[in-house]
Design a protein around this nucleic acid. Structure first.
Lengths: 402, 402
DNA sequence: GCCGTTATTTTCCGCTGTCAATAAAAGAAA
DNA sequence: TTTCTTTTATTGACAGCGGAAAATAACGGC
């Protein structure tokens, strides 16, 4: 993918270099010895990997802001004190954009994927051409802001729902955007003058969780997103599962109840047909007989204790819990992270999710650690940025292709 | 793990050596160039890897039995003709034993996992001590037979259902055998004088399929076994999924119908509670009001067209198809292989499996290739042998531990 | 200042796989 | 027959990566 003339490059000369860097990136300030232990490398190899990274400014010595905190206290009094190494987040910036059917969400992050700036823009026309123009405008806004910083923007990540071929940078089919075979990486790279990574939105979020979130250091975990749709990103053997035909993690279309309501996919009782936003709104409307314009209204009714509304959420939680149990029974992940805008209704179904999971999980699969966390709206865009960071580090430049 | 004095060793000097060897093992006679292409290596690397393998007799030149067949015909008339290389199956033998609750099944295979000899022996006492003694006897029978061959037995694989820690060679918990924390690899190695690999039975079968069967060359596939239980082995990113807590592939305890019959796991409508042997027998008994001693009788009734019996199988096929769809929706495998003794009733539910799968698979997940094949009784033991072959090749000796 | 201890770096060193050139084994052309 | 073309396989020089061991650094305690 065409790069800007003075594109940032990452000195990933050797496998070990990238290995050490990602270890430090995910696990905060580390001593060289500890980093080597976690990355499965000898101390000597760490020294050699760290040198060019320090020289190029991607790593810096010292424990960062919280230096002198608990970390120092834990140090044994004997022997040479360990020197910490951490990633210099300021060294490079990244842009991440999530495109939904009616809006673009964009963030500017640093190398540690900390959000510097978040922006939303409506997407009046979702056709590829106008959408690309809107995206370019938004990215330029970020670039303008970034220009105030010393660091350059080293890559752009774009997250789109649907069937996305990350390696080729092509959106095969996105139902919400109604796109087919759009070579988005190439188009956006030309339009924005940045190396571009394009990935499926849930997978992008999974990458963010794997490198910077609750999945850091885990080789097997699942991320479940609850919202308009119910999605699931899977990490198995340390790698995000993409599926042979571009489909994977479709927890939303597992059948929770064959006698349940009809789903747009044609089956009955899909998790999404019970616990998706639209399904919940419809079901609360039926149950209460009231006007329920959107999911916020549904949540409000349930919180007010209107008869019937609460039960809808309980059933939704149960369906989600069963879906998660299916994941746990099949893959035996170490952890499942449940997240999503839908969790505005957190308190309404967290208990049911856990209970249904525990009931339906088989044997030791129930030992899986289930975490439930809310999801800030810019998180999807942050996931996109995480994919850009990932390609920057693993490919030496921000470009996913080539 | 203690080895015999003159233990066979495999010259896996370098990663590339093992890589090339397994490629040739799985894909039959290959030219060096082709092997390199498949293994992602340069021609030069293949030459270097092949040399010691030829010298030690693990590979031989020539196309084997079917030499001069279609392979020759497909050769273009131009240029130096390609020289084929193939694995010398005669070079080493392996023993594989599957332990069920009431019987031991053992096979002697060659290096290509072709069965030379199959034996069954009852297991009157399933306690670890007596079972080990019976296993040792059976293995010695195989060894006696093997002594007639020039090749030595290079390893023993043991497959057990339940929670097995292959790396440690320990059976954590096997319900059917009622074993807990039995260090089987160590015990059997001492008793039989062979390097031993112990693995879960379904995973062992999956390894056999991955290296020698319908999964050869696929990086993502699933193997579903239908019989007393409904099991599933998963290969993701080219590796068998083991699960963080020893549980994975529990397709049998996915809930196909929350209103279904009670399962021994405590839930309702598990796939196994609908399609497992015991469930089918019970359901046929209810439906027909007749005496149904075992699953053969149930199959017979269904084949005779006794009212009700056929429907039981139809519902079972539906449940299995749904379970497979769940796997396909979550993981997007390239292929699903359905196999098992239960397939004696193949014709009774194959159509329902396929139909339920197609209906419940979401989007492109339905493009997954579903194959249905019967499973000879010695296949489980062959799976055990495959694990022994695997450790022999990857560890240089037949020992999984150390 | 010396010692014990732990962290990091340095200095080789073996090993692996690639590259580019070369040999080999045909059929085709002259 | 000889020579050329084409494809496959091999060789040998080579670069570089990561490891082991030894050296060095940085303490706190004595």
């Amino acid at each position: 993918m065409r790069s800007t003339p003075h594109a940032e490059t990452f000195p990933a000369h050797t496998p070990a270099t990238a290995q050490v860097f990602t270890t430090v990136l995910s696990h905060g300030p580390l001593t060289r010895l500890e980093a080597g232990r976690r990355a499965g490398l000898s101390p000597a190899a760490v020294t050699k990997a760290v040198r060019p990274l320090l020289a190029s400014g991607y790593l810096v010595e010292g424990g960062g802001p919280e230096e002198g905190g608990t970390r120092e206290a834990a140090r044994p009094a004997l022997g040479r004190p360990a020197g910490l190494v951490r990633v210099n987040g300021e060294r490079a910036l990244f842009a991440g954009v999530k495109a939904t059917g009616d809006e673009l969400i964009a963030v500017l992050t640093d190398l540690c994927c900390r959000v510097r700036l978040a922006r939303r823009a409506p997407l009046p026309d979702r056709a590829a051409g106008p959408a690309l123009a809107a995206l370019t405008d938004l990215v330029h806004e970020l670039l303008t802001h970034a220009a105030e910083s010393r660091a350059a923007v080293a890559g752009l990540g774009i997250a789109v729902s649907g069937d996305v071929d990350r390696a080729e940078g092509v959106v095969r089919y996105s139902p919400f955007l109604d796109w087919r075979d759009v070579p988005l990486a190439e188009l956006a790279a030309t339009a924005c003058g940045l190396p571009v990574t394009v990935d499926n939105d849930v997978r992008a979020l999974t990458v963010a969780e794997q490198w910077f979130g609750a999945g850091a250091g885990l080789s097997d975990f699942a991320l479940v997103t609850v919202g308009a749709g119910i999605g699931c990103g899977l990490v198995v053997h340390g790698r995000v599962v993409a599926g042979a035909h571009g489909v994977a993690g479709e927890i939303g279309h597992l059948v929770a109840d064959p006698a349940g309501p009809l789903c747009h996919c044609g089956n009955r009782g899909c998790v999404e047909a019970i616990a998706g936003d639209a399904a919940i709104v419809a079901r609360v409307r039926e149950a209460t007989g009231r006007d329920v314009p959107d999911s916020a209204a549904a949540v409000a009714l349930a919180h007010q204790g209107v008869p019937g509304a609460r039960e809808v959420y309980a059933r939704a939680g149960e369906a989600i819990g069963r879906g998660i149990a299916a994941v746990a029974n099949l893959l035996g992940p170490e952890r499942v992270i449940i997240s999503g805008e839908g969790l505005a209704a957190y308190d309404l179904f967290a208990a049911q999710i856990r209970q249904a999971f525990t009931t339906a999980a088989f044997g030791s699969a129930a030992r899986c650690d289930v975490q439930i966390r809310p999801l800030p709206f810019e998180e999807w865009a942050r996931g996109a940025a995480a994919t850009a960071i990932q390609t920057f580090i693993t490919h030496g430049t921000g470009s996913g292709k080539g």
